[in-house]
Design a protein around this nucleic acid. Structure first.
Length: 581
RNA sequence: GCACCCGUAGCUCAGUGGAUAGAGCAGCGGUUUUCUAAACCGUUGGCCCCAGGUUCGAAUCCUGGCGGGUGCACCA
């Protein structure tokens, strides 16, 4: 079935002398009530036709009769505004949602192309810090959006599980007299404490840093005992990571971290050398990028150990060879833009034309209000940082208090509180554009009114609640889902209220918003869209009571459609689409 | 110094080539016998950092400033 834009474009084409596809892309959605459903700006035609835009609009309006579902064509301010019959618009929009259900908004835009998305990628031996949430949820959201748009998505957690840090961990493990038998049931907190203990001890004993470097070198060279310890540390880390990812409903296809690529190092270094890119400088192996106005890339330290960019080069080649990606996205904070510029340049110099498909998707900092009232970066390396699990727990506790106050009979309040807390935190990070630094404030992030996670969740809850109550009248335990049934007997003319029309119009825009999000590699448009649907829902429900009304059948149908779309939008940004709260 | 990013209402932010620049919070005033008031409605509040340029049209694109954040050789 043709879209309205396509129909309008074909209608216009013979009159404006442009191909229909070009007209279709030029059509805009009016911002103001009373300007119709679609607009055609006549300004670009003015020069060729040697007429003023308002005149062109007037002439087109006279020449083209309203027809079919197009009820009215009006010129205004140089625009040609198209008004669709509201009843037809409602039928078309809602029946499409009903027919497609969870697939609503899906496209075949990706056409089976493969996109690799690298996100979250925390360091081994440490817990997820609060600032990891943003990149994790951006990557999670983009994964879902790309999949919905017809891409094959490969989700990769490029764990920071290699480097001198793990020499430190091993040194400290042994220094504290621990043995392999102590690894059983060792917690991530204990592991993290070892790391901190090292930092403290190293301030007293300067030789420790050297020991760590040496230990790591031996680890890289294949030292059996060290490798065993390393593997155990990794297991402990993964176990905890997956617990937290479970709270966030985040998954990965591969946990191929840096260590995975250690075996590729000789091949990668040989390739760089044979291509004449590797030079020696100050005892280290580097790629000199002065010709490209960049600092040198350090491939191998003077002690022979490789660095993370070396492993990133190997990883990019591996991913191209094994996943045949059409795009490879790195969801990593903006502070690493130089690293990715260098990575890209090295791949280019290696002769890989596909370096253009490798893209850094940076995001801004999450700043936390410090004790002195200033904004501070959440820190891990210097010790002071909020752990993500602590932030989630704190959110959960605060929300639990609100549930006890508002809905004391709710079941499984702990889980519910966590889902609302996660929703609040995630929404507060994704509702802003990706590159903006975020000033995180507890009260605002956990606010349960206004532009917030609980606000959008609450709209979903209200929709679900109506469908539940509808079923309960007939003693059914499962909620009604009228959109899953027949359209027979639905009168799409029964949505005369402006609130209903606004909501229906918003519901029609899902695919456009997904396109916006993918074009920008940013979940923000979907978070804003969820807000728009939630607002539309709350306003509609305020004026239109469904159950027991003369329009019950129609309104329940709209309620179910709104539930489907809002539920999908929430799922796309990683806000739990809960059904009661 | 160089590089990446940001600058829109008192505060936090949407809008990123189209018409009269929008929300939330804060302020003021209303709405509940009714499906979740975690809601709704009204109202106050703008040289869209500055200056040039491109364009029929710029908050949006380009150039140059100013202000702020972040990064730049042996950590990841």
């Amino acid at each position: 079935m043709k879209t309205y834009k396509e129909e309008i474009a074909e209608l216009l084409a013979p009159h404006v002398g442009l191909p229909a596809s070009e007209i279709r892309d030029a059509l805009t959605l009016p911002q103001h009530d009373g300007h119709g459903h679609f607009s055609f700006p006549c300004f670009p035609l003015a020069k060729r036709l040697r007429k003023a835009p308002p005149v062109i609009a007037q002439e087109l309006a006279t020449a083209i009769p309203a027809q079919g579902e197009i009820e009215k064509i009006e010129p205004l301010n140089g625009y040609l505004n198209f008004f669709i019959n509201e009843s037809d618009f409602a039928r078309r929009t809602l029946s499409l949602i009903a027919a497609q259900g969870a697939n609503y908004g899906a496209t075949d835009r990706g056409n089976g192309k493969t996109v690799v998305i690298d996100y979250s990628s925390p360091n081994m031996g440490k817990e997820l810090a609060f600032h990891h949430l943003r990149g994790t949820m951006i990557g999670n959201s983009l994964s879902r959006l790309y999949r919905h748009a017809g891409f094959q998505v490969v989700r990769i957690n490029h764990l920071g599980d290699w480097g001198t840090s793990y020499g430190k961990l091993i040194v400290m493990f042994l220094r504290e007299g621990l043995r392999e038998s102590d690894l059983e049931g060792m917690s991530i907190e204990r592991l993290n404490a070892l790391y901190k203990a090292f930092e403290n001890a190293a301030r007293e004993d300067a030789t420790l840093e050297d020991q760590a470097r040496e230990t790591f070198q031996q680890l890289e060279a294949g030292h059996a005992r060290y490798q065993g310890l390393w593997a155990a540390f990794r297991d402990i880390t993964l176990h905890e990571l997956q617990r937290i990812y479970g709270f966030l409903n985040v998954q990965f296809d591969h946990y191929t971290g840096e260590a995975f690529f250690v075996a590729h190092m000789p091949k990668t270094l040989a390739e760089l050398e044979s291509k004449g890119l590797m030079t020696r400088s100050q005892g280290a192996d580097i790629v000199d990028l002065t010709a490209h106005n960049m600092p040198p890339v350090l491939l191998r330290k003077s002690d022979g150990a490789t660095l993370y960019i070396t492993r990133d080069i190997a990883a990019a080649v591996y991913r191209k060879e094994n996943y045949a990606f059409d795009r490879c996205l790195y969801i990593v904070d903006n502070g690493q833009s130089l690293h990715f510029q260098q990575l890209n340049k090295v791949l280019e110099l290696m002769g890989y034309a596909w370096h253009k498909e490798v893209e850094h998707v940076p995001f801004g900092l999450v700043l936390i209000k410090g004790e002195d009232g200033g904004w501070e970066k959440g820190k891990t390396r210097s010790g002071q940082s909020s752990l993500l699990k602590d932030v989630i727990t704190a959110a959960q506790e605060k929300i639990l208090g609100i549930i006890n106050e508002k809905n004391p009979d709710a079941k499984d309040k702990e889980t519910l509180a966590r889902q609302i807390g996660v929703g609040a935190l995630v929404f507060s990070e994704l509702k802003n554009r990706r590159l903006n630094d975020i000033r995180f404030e507890w009260d605002k992030a956990l606010s349960f009114e206004g532009d917030s996670g609980p606000y959008v969740q609450n709209a979903h809850v209200r929709l679900c609640s109506i469908l539940r109550k509808s079923a309960e009248r007939f003693g059914k335990s499962e909620p009604d889902h009228p959109a899953a049934g027949s359209l027979d007997g639905i009168d799409f003319g029964k949505f005369p209220e402006p609130q209903a029309q606004t909501l229906i119009r918003s519901l029609s825009l899902f695919a456009d918003r997904i396109r916006n999000a993918i074009d920008a590699n940013d979940p923000c448009p979907i978070a804003q869209y969820a807000l728009e649907i939630a607002e539309g829902t709350h306003s509609f429900l305020h004026v239109c009571r469904a159950l027991g009304s003369a329009e019950e059948k129609e309104r329940l149908f709209l309620v179910d459609c709104a539930r489907i779309v809002l539920g999908q939008a929430l799922a796309m940004i990683g806000v739990p689409p809960i059904e009661s709260m």
